[in-house]
Design a protein around this nucleic acid. Structure first.
Lengths: 137, 137
DNA sequence: TATTGTTATACTCTATAACTATA
DNA sequence: TATAGTTATAGAGTATAACAATA
């Protein structure tokens, strides 16, 4: 596909729009984008600090601080590993799990509403375009 | 359009992807996303601090700090207003202008490359979808 | 009095480097 | 020695509140 300048601008706008949805909904729960991302990763995993740092693409010290702040708010726990006593696993608390689910549901609803006005006959091409852009999953 | 969960995930991924392009290219110029956004806004405007704060959707104190850092790097200037002596206008310096143009060109090239694999026959529907999602410009 | 912009202060987020404990 | 994680420190980014200069 050959893209004009205005399409590129629209793509950037769409991106900011989606980010804004995440930020706004997270903000309603007094959660920063970084913290929201952490919670989202933890909802189906209990990684070690090192693994978490790799998933977040952050330095381990940054990850440690992020987990500190989440822990101070009762959203995650550090679980000592028995296999390697240097290591800890990070896990959502029930409160953290609830908040994460609430957040995900609201964001999904917002994005659905955002896509709703796209005419049904363009939907398939739109979905296909996203798949091609993002590559094999 | 009715969107499934995986499409919503892809939309979020696309958004992060586009953001990542901006961050990576800005990073190459040692410019933060916030600073890049400031420069982008200034490339066709010389707003007052108040106007700039509104454009960036930031507090005026945050805007002041952002302009401070840009100014310290020689990328923008504060031009005193003659009409209202409380007011200043912010303008790109030649260096800032060069950097901004370089950045915009690289980001555009990256996004074009990203869209290139979208089949030509889906391009129109994709562009139309973006327009509908973003609403009247 | 109201408005424009800056400053003081505080918190989050991030990184680098030094450190502790364990392997 | 090497690895997992934390801590010390520093800087960017943001906001609120108090302030100065001007209107």
């Amino acid at each position: 596909m050959v893209a004009g300048a205005s399409l590129l601008d629209q793509l950037a706008d769409l991106s900011r729009h989606v980010q804004a949805v995440h930020e706004r909904r997270a903000g309603e729960e007094h959660v920063s984008p970084s913290l929201a991302r952490l919670l989202g990763l933890l909802c189906d995993r209990s990684p070690t600090m090192n693994e978490l740092a790799a998933l977040l693409d952050l330095d381990k010290s940054s990850t440690s601080g992020l987990v500190d702040r989440a822990q101070r708010r009762g959203l995650v726990r550090r679980v000592p590993s028995q296999l390697d006593r240097r290591s800890v696993r990070v896990r959502l608390t029930p409160d953290g799990s609830d908040l994460t689910a609430r957040l995900a549901a609201r964001i999904a609803a917002d994005l659905e509403a955002m896509l709703e006005p796209v005419p049904e006959e363009d939907g398939a091409a739109f979905a296909r375009s996203l798949s091609v852009i993002l590559g094999p999953r």
